[in-house]
Amino acid sequence: MKKLSLLGLLGLVLRRDLLLAMRRRADVLTTLIFFVMVVSLFPLGVGPEIDMLRKMASGVVWVAALLASMLSLPRMFSADYADGTLEQMMLAPQSLSVLVLGKIAAHWMLSGLPLALIAPVLGLQFDMSVPALWILVIALLLGTPVLSMIGAVGAALTLGLRGGGVLVSLLVLPLCIPVLIFGAGAVEAVNSGMSVVSNLSFLGAFMLFALVFTPFVAAQALRISME
């Protein structure tokens, strides 16, 4: 049995987690429904004036995306932690960072990706222009992975703690504020005709920065929590 390559490990963990998630499809839908509901609540609270809604749209969608991805974070490790597979995974002679990266990718595909795909539909609720919708999707595709990655560190730190769900949000949300600022800023720039390149490049920079560091940091956090 040839030794599993890192990419092979990544694919293995990704396939496993997606398979597990598909068996409990409700979890994926809850994140999506929560996102749609939160975005739809705003016009009810703020009032139906279209021009105000158009101005608020990107901020509302981004905050809802942040909250929705926080919702499913605790489940990233808790199922495996409960039945002990996480312990076996950590004992396996494989790189824990890549394994965690696989879990992060699985979490992103189950929460970040659907949010980005459904965001244009919600954008129509706020009467956003077509270019704005495109930029919103691109910004979400760039930003939501960072939420999953920083969230993975939070989830690993609060493994097995009661009240972990709220605690993860308290730990992780302040760290995601730059993503929110530049994500919402990107759509804002389109509406006001400014160039979008700077905002999107910042989002890309955050993603690469997170991609390099968070798997290792999350692996350390797992080792601390599992001692």
Binding site: V153, L175, I177, F206, F213, V217, I224, S225
Partner: peptide
């Protein structure tokens, strides 16, 4: 575990503080 976990959070936090300060200023 409390020490080590919060230590990791403090380190991650301190790395993020300049980024947060810059993006808020922007």
């Amino acid at each position: 575990r409390a020490d080590r976990a919060s230590a990791l959070l403090a380190i991650v936090g301190s790395v993020n503080v300049p980024i947060i300060y810059f993006s808020v200023k922007w």
